[in-house]
């Protein structure tokens, strides 16, 4: 079982992102589970969401304490919250940032793989959100597919087209763009 934890801010679509990742994995025949950290969500406030992907029935129903993958929709959160707590050795962090991965040193966890991509710019190019608040949840899933291999980019694009009612094709194309541009 692969456990993925999303970190974003209210309005960026982290919860929907965790759901779309589960949908993509489901399209590949996996058992899935996706759920938000059940806070009283307000725009701008830090948001956490979870995705579990497995070949077998998923029985566990608690938060993810030792994730295999972290997906960070807002780089500011890397320093604002204790985000890497519990990340498994050899785990992966996918970050939406204009910076190089060297800007995000992780200490205390061996063999962490960091992947960065400027999802905000990509999302804006496809008209997703506004310059003040780009919606990056679909875009970053392309990067997750590339960096982790848990799902294919085709499944991600299909899930987006199935579940996003507004601009489905542009969202899917943004994800493909991020997939292609990933600096891993």
């Amino acid at each position: 079982m692969i456990e993925i934890r999303f970190h974003g801010r209210g309005g960026q679509g982290a919860v929907k992102g965790s759901d779309l990742l589960a949908m993509a994995a489901f399209r590949e025949g996996k058992q899935v589970q996706a759920f938000p950290f059940f806070g009283v969500e307000r725009r701008g406030a830090p948001v956490t969401a979870y995705t579990r992907i497995s070949d077998d029935v998923i029985r566990i129903h608690c938060f993810i304490y030792e994730p295999d993958v972290l997906v960070v929709l807002d780089p500011g959160l890397m320093s604002a919250v204790p985000l890497t707590d519990g990340l498994k050795p050899g785990g992966t962090i996918v970050i939406n940032t204009t910076l190089d991965k060297s800007a995000f040193p992780v200490t205390g966890i061996p063999d962490v793989k960091i992947a960065t991509v400027d999802c905000s710019s990509i999302a804006l190019r496809y008209g997703l959100g506004t310059p003040e608040a780009p919606i990056v949840n679909t875009t970053i899933l392309g990067a997750v597919a590339r960096a982790t291999g848990v799902v294919s980019i085709d499944s991600v694009a299909d899930a987006i087209r199935e579940r996003i009612p507004n601009k489905p094709d542009l969202n899917a194309q943004a994800a493909r763009d991020a997939y292609d541009r990933l600096h891993g």
């Binding site: 489901f26 938000p36 129903h61």
Partner: peptide, 12 residues
Amino acid sequence: LDAFFLSHTSQV
């Protein structure tokens, strides 16, 4: 069904 642990959790 448990609040959020089922109500807001996606599963197959």
